[in-house]
Simulated assay, not measured.
Amino acid sequence: MNATKNESSTTPGPLRRNSLPLVFGLLLLGALVGQAISGLAGVNADARDAGLQQIGMLEYLTSSSFAVDVAENWQSEYLQFLLFILLTIWFVQKGSPESKPLHKIGRGTDEEQKVGEHADPDSPTWARADGWRRALFSHSLGLTMGAIFLASWLAQLIAGHAAYNAEQLRELKAPLTFGDYLTAPDFWSRTFQNWQSEFLAVASMVVLAIYLRERGSPESKPVGEPHESTGVEG
């Protein structure tokens, strides 16, 4: 009876079990608030310098200027994860916990993936199914990340077009059509400056995690694990 009580008392509650996404959600909210406050201050400072009317927070939050700044960051983040999910199927890095073991390149066998007749009793229903349901579930993470990337990239394109033309009109210049903006330096400059930072961050994590450690993190190898150990998490 005491053992049961002790066991139940050590079981994490719902907040603890979901603490990682909750903490990141709060960090996201804090960053958005900070971006809104500083962004509004910047927009109003530019308006004062140009002798234009200043705007309030609600107007700024619903503006194309705020939307494009948010969307261009979101699309690059989801592109980063999409590429990392797909490229780590086939590409490896010896010694990195971010890589699969060197001998496990590829999508694996049905037995390794626990699908179909090899599924466990508690495996997801669609992992036990045949045909399109298993195929769809087998690629659901990549498909979802890709869909979110495309949606946020499209949002960046639409909001960026509106924000760019608003600036053009303020400067008494001709606005661009949607097609012209798609090939304009402003759009691709915004896009590439975000992509390159994401690629650098992932490459740095893959390589630095070979030789450096963070005790207790699943993104790091155990502190005493040899540098050449691959696909081992702490």
Results as ranks from 00 to 15, higher is better:
Asn2Asp: 08
Ala3His: 09
Ala3Gln: 06
Asn6Met: 05
Ser8Gln: 12
Ser9Pro: 04
Thr10Val: 10
Pro12Met: 07
Pro12Trp: 02
Pro12Glu: 11
Gly13Asn: 13
Gly13Met: 08
Asn18Gly: 13
Ser19Tyr: 09
Pro21His: 14
Phe24Trp: 06
Phe24His: 11
Gly25Ala: 06
Gly25Val: 08
Leu28Thr: 13
Ala31Pro: 04
Gly34Thr: 11
Gln35Asp: 00
Ile37Leu: 14
Ile37Met: 11
Ser38Asp: 02
Ala41Gln: 14
Ala41Arg: 08
Val43Leu: 04
Asn44Met: 05
Ala45Asn: 00
Ala47Met: 00
Ala50Gly: 00
Leu52Asp: 14
Leu52Ser: 09
Gln54Cys: 03
Gly56His: 02
Glu59Trp: 03
Tyr60Ala: 01
Leu61Gln: 09
Thr62Cys: 03
Ser63Thr: 03
Ser65Cys: 06
Ala67Asp: 09
Ala67Glu: 10
Glu72Ala: 07
Trp74Phe: 12
Trp74Gly: 11
Ser76Phe: 03
Leu79Tyr: 06
Thr88Asp: 09
Thr88Tyr: 05
Val92Ala: 15
Val92Arg: 13
Val92Gly: 08
Lys94Gly: 09
Gly95Arg: 07
Ser96Glu: 13
Ser96Met: 14
Ser99His: 13
Lys100Cys: 15
Lys100Phe: 03
Pro101Val: 14
Leu102Cys: 09
Lys104Gly: 05
Gly108Leu: 04
Gly108Pro: 06
Glu112Tyr: 01
Lys114Thr: 01
Lys114Asp: 00
Val115Gln: 00
Gly116Ala: 03
His118Pro: 00
Ala119Thr: 02
Asp122Lys: 04
Asp122Trp: 11
Ala127Gly: 02
Arg128Asn: 01
Ala129Gln: 01
Asp130Ala: 05
Gly131Leu: 01
Gly131Glu: 00
Gly131Asn: 05
Arg133Tyr: 00
Arg133Ala: 15
Arg133Ile: 02
Ala135Thr: 10
His139Ser: 12
Ser140Met: 15
Leu141Asp: 06
Leu143Ala: 07
Gly146Val: 03
Ala147Trp: 04
Ile148Glu: 06
Ile148Val: 10
Leu150Ile: 06
Ser152Val: 13
Ser152Met: 08
Trp153Arg: 06
Ala155Asn: 11
Ile158Ala: 07
Gly160Met: 02
His161Ile: 01
Ala163Arg: 10
Tyr164Phe: 12
Gln168Arg: 09
Leu172Ile: 10
Lys173Phe: 04
Ala174His: 06
Pro175Gln: 03
Leu176Tyr: 00
Thr177Ile: 07
Phe178Gln: 12
Gly179Asp: 05
Tyr181Pro: 05
Leu182Thr: 12
Thr183Cys: 07
Thr183Phe: 10
Pro185Ser: 06
Trp188Gln: 06
Trp188Phe: 09
Ser189Asp: 04
Arg190Met: 10
Thr191Ile: 04
Trp195Ala: 14
Gln196Pro: 00
Phe199Leu: 13
Val202Lys: 09
Val202Leu: 06
Ala203Pro: 09
Ala203Met: 13
Ser204His: 05
Ser204Phe: 11
Met205Ile: 14
Met205Phe: 12
Leu208Phe: 14
Leu208Asp: 05
Ala209Arg: 15
Ile210Val: 15
Tyr211Pro: 00
Arg213Ile: 15
Arg213Trp: 13
Arg215Ala: 14
Arg215Trp: 12
Gly216Ile: 14
Ser217His: 15
Ser220Asn: 05
Lys221Pro: 08
Gly224Val: 05
Glu225Cys: 15
Glu225Phe: 13
His227Lys: 10
Ser229Lys: 09
Gly231Lys: 10
Gly231Glu: 03
Val232His: 13
Val232Asp: 09
Glu233Ala: 15
